[in-house]
Design a protein around this nucleic acid. Sequence first.
RNA 1: CGGGAGGUAGCGCAGUCCGGCUAGCGCGCUUGGUUCGGGACCAAGAGGCCGAGGGUUCAAAUCCCUCUCUCCCGACCA
Length: 409
Amino acid sequence: MLYSKSFIFTLRDDPKTAECVSHKLLLKGSYLSMISSGIYSYLPLGFRVLENISNVIRKNMNLAGAEELLMSALQPIEMWQKTGRDQVLSEVMFKFKDRKNRNLCLGPTHEEEITEIVKKFVLSYKQLPRILYQIQTKYRDEVRPRFGVVRACEFIMKDAYSFDADEDGLGENYKKMFSAYENIFNECGLKFITIEADSGPMGGNASHEFMVQAEIGEDILLYCEKCGKYFKEKENCLDCAAKLTEKRMIEIGHVFKLGTKYSLAQEALFVDKDGARKPVIMGCYGIGVSRLLSAIVETNYDEKGIIWPKSVSPFDVSLVVLSENLKDNAIALGDKLERLGLKVLVDERNDGAGVKFNDAYLLGNPYIVIMGKNYTSSGKIDLEIRKTKEKHNFSEEELINFLKEAYGK
RNA sequence: CGGGAGGUAGCGCAGUCCGGCUAGCGCGCUUGGUUCGGGACCAAGAGGCCGAGGGUUCAAAUCCCUCUCUCCCGACCA
């Protein structure tokens, strides 16, 4: 992909409307475009990262035996009346009427809808257990949207729902999802912690939150420097009694054991082995996909810009060409790398070296490859690792082998 | 929803107290030339209903009123 043909328009100055690091860098790097407060469009770069995150999630959900579907965002209010959550979530729902005067909302979450679907098809214990998930846009009329895509009114969420015939089954699925989440966040380069949480308006009897530490975190946990443990309560460390310090945390995922709250209210019943009709036992598991964009940046950046983990970066390589007469060579090298399955952004713009380097640092792709006077004089290509700043001087063949190895190609 | 800060060119800002504007500056953009391994230089250009509406005044970006949008702190947050 050629830089000059890409929809990449970095800003030189920090955007004024952004205060926090991730929001600033995502706007500055033209990953996002703000439409209104809490409403964002993902530009091609941002969309690439979103897709990469989604694919990490898909891979791990599928491995855990979950099946992907896509539910409607448009929902009739009546669906919510059975569980009473039309009242509970009334404030956050975007509500309106259709031409037949029917009350609709844009789904803020999907427990009710998935329960209606499962109720229709799952009639026997033989059809259990199941895990279904989707990656879909949610709508919440937030009181105070903030930090860009961290808390937005329209956002992308991965929501999964498990269905079991008994508590043991739920326990197993809960564990499966829990460890899938650990894999997902690890692969996304996030240093997360887990903590037991209240289930709040979701209902249910057990839940864990996955959190990363960041300045802009909206939740506060107490941290023990000695034990490296986090606590919710304002006591001293339960292990070593040391004083605790406050840490701000971003919630990136949340898993809940829902039990029968929804299945009872919506009469999602199945016939068990003993012939009795019983409510299906549910769990739900959410990841803020668009929020991860911010969370990853918030925890992976330096003074020059973003440092994407390899798993989610928009490109694998920023190939910077510093001489106009090397353009063709660079494009040829880019093609070669792309045929190996690498994503390469060839910066062949007629701009000074500083501009190109700074943009490469800002955009944050893991490898910066430089073709310039070293190539002209000795056929050598420079490579800089964005994260470690480590530099190499390679022949073309060495470079290709290095990148092949780095990406297991 | 309470408190605070803001809205002037695509982006970042000055000007607002103390009215005189035919509204500036930097970046970016266009054209030509010189540069070309670290946000280059010269020359010539284009680009604004000064957030919106009303008022005061000979005269409003500037003063007054109303509204609106954005950001921050807090409350809230599946």
